[in-house]
Amino acid sequence: MTATKLMLNEITRVYHDGDTELTVLNKLSLEVKAGELVAVMGPSGSGKSTFLSIAGALLTPTSGEVLIDGESLAGKNGQQLSKLRLHNIGFIFQSANLLPYLKVEEQLMLVAKLADMDKRAAQARSAMLLERLGLLHRRSAYPNQLSGGEKQRVAIARAWMNDPAILFADEPTASLDASRGQDVVAMLAREVKAEGKAAVMVTHDERVLHLCDRILHLKNGVLVSA
Protein backbone atom coordinates (compact mmCIF):
# COMPACT_ATOMS: atom_id res chain seq x y z
CA MET A 1 0.00 0.00 0.00
CA THR A 2 1.47 3.36 -1.03
CA ALA A 3 2.06 5.72 1.89
CA THR A 4 0.30 9.08 2.02
CA LYS A 5 2.84 11.89 2.34
CA LEU A 6 0.45 14.86 2.44
CA MET A 7 -3.16 15.01 3.59
CA LEU A 8 -5.29 18.14 3.68
CA ASN A 9 -8.72 17.57 5.25
CA GLU A 10 -11.36 20.23 4.55
CA ILE A 11 -8.97 23.17 4.82
CA THR A 12 -10.65 26.56 5.10
CA ARG A 13 -8.81 29.87 5.31
CA VAL A 14 -10.70 33.09 5.95
CA TYR A 15 -9.18 36.57 5.93
CA HIS A 16 -10.80 39.56 7.63
CA ASP A 17 -10.37 43.16 6.55
CA GLY A 18 -12.53 45.33 8.75
CA ASP A 19 -16.11 44.17 8.22
CA THR A 20 -15.15 42.28 5.07
CA GLU A 21 -14.65 38.50 5.20
CA LEU A 22 -12.83 36.75 2.37
CA THR A 23 -12.81 32.96 2.14
CA VAL A 24 -9.74 32.02 0.09
CA LEU A 25 -9.84 28.25 0.66
CA ASN A 26 -13.18 26.56 1.24
CA LYS A 27 -13.07 23.03 2.68
CA LEU A 28 -10.21 22.10 0.36
CA SER A 29 -9.05 18.48 0.53
CA LEU A 30 -6.03 16.80 -1.05
CA GLU A 31 -4.11 13.54 -0.68
CA VAL A 32 -0.66 13.07 -2.21
CA LYS A 33 0.99 9.66 -2.06
CA ALA A 34 4.62 8.61 -2.25
CA GLY A 35 5.96 8.74 -5.79
CA GLU A 36 3.51 11.41 -6.94
CA LEU A 37 4.29 14.78 -8.51
CA VAL A 38 1.11 16.88 -8.45
CA ALA A 39 0.75 20.16 -10.34
CA VAL A 40 -1.54 22.86 -8.96
CA MET A 41 -2.66 25.62 -11.32
CA GLY A 42 -4.88 28.64 -11.02
CA PRO A 43 -5.02 32.34 -11.92
CA SER A 44 -3.47 35.07 -9.77
CA GLY A 45 -5.57 35.64 -6.68
CA SER A 46 -7.03 32.13 -6.66
CA GLY A 47 -5.32 31.24 -3.38
CA LYS A 48 -2.29 29.25 -4.58
CA SER A 49 0.10 31.03 -2.20
CA THR A 50 -2.26 30.50 0.73
CA PHE A 51 -2.65 26.82 -0.21
CA LEU A 52 1.12 26.34 -0.43
CA SER A 53 1.75 28.15 2.86
CA ILE A 54 -0.79 26.02 4.72
CA ALA A 55 0.37 22.74 3.15
CA GLY A 56 3.97 23.68 3.95
CA ALA A 57 3.26 24.43 7.63
CA LEU A 58 3.95 28.15 7.19
CA LEU A 59 0.37 29.30 7.80
CA THR A 60 -2.36 27.93 10.08
CA PRO A 61 -5.77 27.23 8.49
CA THR A 62 -8.92 28.75 9.93
CA SER A 63 -10.31 25.21 10.11
CA GLY A 64 -9.39 21.76 8.85
CA GLU A 65 -6.34 19.56 9.39
CA VAL A 66 -2.98 19.09 7.67
CA LEU A 67 -0.99 15.85 8.02
CA ILE A 68 2.61 15.49 6.80
CA ASP A 69 3.77 11.88 6.53
CA GLY A 70 0.90 10.87 8.80
CA GLU A 71 1.69 13.47 11.48
CA SER A 72 -0.95 16.09 12.23
CA LEU A 73 0.13 19.73 12.48
CA ALA A 74 -2.77 20.55 14.79
CA GLY A 75 -1.71 21.95 18.16
CA LYS A 76 1.97 22.33 17.30
CA ASN A 77 3.72 25.51 18.46
CA GLY A 78 6.08 27.62 16.35
CA GLN A 79 9.20 25.75 17.44
CA GLN A 80 7.64 22.37 16.71
CA LEU A 81 6.47 23.52 13.27
CA SER A 82 9.93 24.89 12.49
CA LYS A 83 11.48 21.54 13.38
CA LEU A 84 8.92 19.69 11.28
CA ARG A 85 9.61 21.92 8.26
CA LEU A 86 13.34 21.34 8.60
CA HIS A 87 13.06 17.55 8.76
CA ASN A 88 9.90 16.68 6.84
CA ILE A 89 9.42 19.37 4.18
CA GLY A 90 11.56 20.62 1.31
CA PHE A 91 10.97 23.90 -0.54
CA ILE A 92 11.98 25.08 -4.03
CA PHE A 93 11.21 28.68 -4.90
CA GLN A 94 10.75 30.66 -8.11
CA SER A 95 14.31 31.91 -7.82
CA ALA A 96 16.70 29.32 -6.44
CA ASN A 97 17.39 31.44 -3.31
CA LEU A 98 20.94 30.15 -2.99
CA LEU A 99 23.25 31.87 -0.51
CA PRO A 100 25.73 33.84 -2.66
CA TYR A 101 28.73 33.29 -0.37
CA LEU A 102 28.43 29.48 -0.20
CA LYS A 103 29.67 26.97 -2.76
CA VAL A 104 27.24 24.38 -4.14
CA GLU A 105 28.27 21.64 -1.72
CA GLU A 106 28.21 24.09 1.19
CA GLN A 107 24.59 25.00 0.40
CA LEU A 108 23.60 21.38 1.07
CA MET A 109 25.88 20.93 4.06
CA LEU A 110 24.42 23.99 5.79
CA VAL A 111 20.93 22.45 5.65
CA ALA A 112 22.33 19.20 7.06
CA LYS A 113 24.08 21.10 9.87
CA LEU A 114 20.86 22.91 10.82
CA ALA A 115 19.19 19.50 11.13
CA ASP A 116 22.08 18.06 13.21
CA MET A 117 22.83 15.42 10.58
CA ASP A 118 26.01 13.40 11.10
CA LYS A 119 28.72 15.14 9.06
CA ARG A 120 30.01 12.01 7.32
CA ALA A 121 26.50 10.88 6.43
CA ALA A 122 25.72 14.40 5.19
CA GLN A 123 28.79 14.45 2.96
CA ALA A 124 27.83 11.10 1.46
CA ARG A 125 24.22 12.19 0.84
CA SER A 126 25.35 15.51 -0.63
CA ALA A 127 27.69 13.75 -3.07
CA MET A 128 24.97 11.26 -4.03
CA LEU A 129 22.38 13.96 -4.72
CA LEU A 130 24.79 16.17 -6.67
CA GLU A 131 25.92 13.23 -8.77
CA ARG A 132 22.33 12.18 -9.51
CA LEU A 133 21.46 15.72 -10.57
CA GLY A 134 24.57 16.07 -12.74
CA LEU A 135 26.20 18.65 -10.48
CA LEU A 136 29.10 16.83 -8.83
CA HIS A 137 31.62 18.61 -11.06
CA ARG A 138 30.11 21.95 -9.94
CA ARG A 139 30.23 21.30 -6.19
CA SER A 140 32.94 23.94 -5.62
CA ALA A 141 31.24 26.62 -7.74
CA TYR A 142 29.56 29.70 -6.30
CA PRO A 143 25.99 30.59 -7.35
CA ASN A 144 27.17 33.43 -9.62
CA GLN A 145 29.14 30.85 -11.62
CA LEU A 146 26.05 28.71 -12.32
CA SER A 147 23.44 28.87 -15.07
CA GLY A 148 19.77 29.33 -14.16
CA GLY A 149 19.10 25.64 -14.70
CA GLU A 150 22.07 24.64 -12.55
CA LYS A 151 20.88 26.90 -9.74
CA GLN A 152 17.47 25.26 -9.74
CA ARG A 153 19.07 21.80 -9.73
CA VAL A 154 21.10 22.85 -6.67
CA ALA A 155 17.83 23.99 -5.10
CA ILE A 156 16.31 20.56 -5.78
CA ALA A 157 19.32 18.82 -4.21
CA ARG A 158 19.18 21.14 -1.19
CA ALA A 159 15.45 20.51 -0.77
CA TRP A 160 16.04 16.72 -0.69
CA MET A 161 19.08 16.96 1.61
CA ASN A 162 17.27 16.19 4.87
CA ASP A 163 15.22 13.36 3.34
CA PRO A 164 11.84 15.14 3.65
CA ALA A 165 8.52 13.39 3.17
CA ILE A 166 7.29 16.01 0.72
CA LEU A 167 8.65 18.78 -1.43
CA PHE A 168 6.81 21.96 -2.43
CA ALA A 169 7.89 23.82 -5.57
CA ASP A 170 6.60 27.34 -6.18
CA GLU A 171 6.83 28.27 -9.89
CA PRO A 172 10.24 26.52 -10.26
CA THR A 173 10.44 27.16 -14.03
CA ALA A 174 9.35 30.81 -14.02
CA SER A 175 12.87 32.18 -14.54
CA LEU A 176 13.98 29.48 -17.00
CA ASP A 177 13.62 29.05 -20.75
CA ALA A 178 11.52 26.15 -22.08
CA SER A 179 14.37 23.65 -22.39
CA ARG A 180 15.85 24.30 -18.95
CA GLY A 181 12.39 24.33 -17.41
CA GLN A 182 11.65 20.89 -18.86
CA ASP A 183 14.98 19.58 -17.56
CA VAL A 184 14.38 20.88 -14.03
CA VAL A 185 10.87 19.42 -13.72
CA ALA A 186 11.97 16.12 -15.30
CA MET A 187 14.71 15.88 -12.66
CA LEU A 188 12.22 16.77 -9.94
CA ALA A 189 9.88 14.02 -11.16
CA ARG A 190 12.75 11.50 -11.26
CA GLU A 191 13.84 12.39 -7.72
CA VAL A 192 10.28 11.96 -6.43
CA LYS A 193 10.31 8.40 -7.76
CA ALA A 194 13.92 7.68 -6.75
CA GLU A 195 13.45 8.95 -3.19
CA GLY A 196 9.99 7.42 -2.76
CA LYS A 197 8.68 10.83 -1.70
CA ALA A 198 6.03 13.22 -3.01
CA ALA A 199 5.98 16.72 -4.49
CA VAL A 200 3.43 19.45 -5.12
CA MET A 201 4.31 22.05 -7.75
CA VAL A 202 2.43 25.31 -8.17
CA THR A 203 2.93 26.40 -11.77
CA HIS A 204 1.58 28.41 -14.70
CA ASP A 205 3.90 26.55 -17.10
CA GLU A 206 1.76 24.28 -19.28
CA ARG A 207 4.91 23.01 -21.05
CA VAL A 208 5.85 20.83 -18.06
CA LEU A 209 2.44 19.39 -17.18
CA HIS A 210 3.07 16.16 -19.09
CA LEU A 211 5.79 15.37 -16.55
CA CYS A 212 3.30 15.43 -13.65
CA ASP A 213 1.21 12.54 -12.35
CA ARG A 214 -1.84 14.71 -11.68
CA ILE A 215 -2.95 18.22 -12.63
CA LEU A 216 -5.32 20.09 -10.32
CA HIS A 217 -6.88 23.55 -10.66
CA LEU A 218 -7.65 25.80 -7.72
CA LYS A 219 -11.12 27.21 -8.33
CA ASN A 220 -13.49 28.85 -5.83
CA GLY A 221 -11.30 27.73 -2.95
CA VAL A 222 -11.17 24.02 -3.82
CA LEU A 223 -8.99 21.79 -5.97
CA VAL A 224 -10.58 20.18 -9.02
CA SER A 225 -9.08 17.74 -11.53
CA ALA A 226 -8.04 19.07 -14.93
Rank of each mutant, 00 (worst) to 15 (best):
A226N: 09
K27W: 01
G45C: 10
L146I: 06
E131M: 06
L216E: 04
L8N: 04
R13T: 12
L99E: 00
Q94H: 02
G181Y: 03
R153K: 14
A115W: 13
L84F: 06
E195R: 11
M117P: 01
S29K: 02
T173A: 04
F168A: 05
I156L: 12
C212F: 01
P100A: 02
Q80H: 04
E36L: 05
S140K: 13
G221Q: 13
V104I: 10
I166M: 11
E10K: 14
V32F: 03
R180T: 11
P164C: 13
D205M: 08
R214K: 14
R132S: 14
A159D: 06
E131P: 05
H204T: 07
V24E: 12
N144V: 00
V224L: 07
A141I: 01
E131L: 02
V111D: 11
N162S: 09
S126E: 13
A199K: 06
F91D: 07
L6I: 10
T23Q: 14
N162P: 11
P172Y: 01
V184L: 01
E206A: 15
G35T: 04
R214P: 03
A55Q: 06
G18Y: 07
I166W: 08
I166D: 10
G221N: 14
T62Y: 09
A198L: 02
A169T: 04
I54E: 04
L25C: 07
R132K: 15
H210Y: 02
D213H: 08
L188I: 03
M1K: 13
G70F: 01
K27M: 09
K83Q: 15
S63A: 11
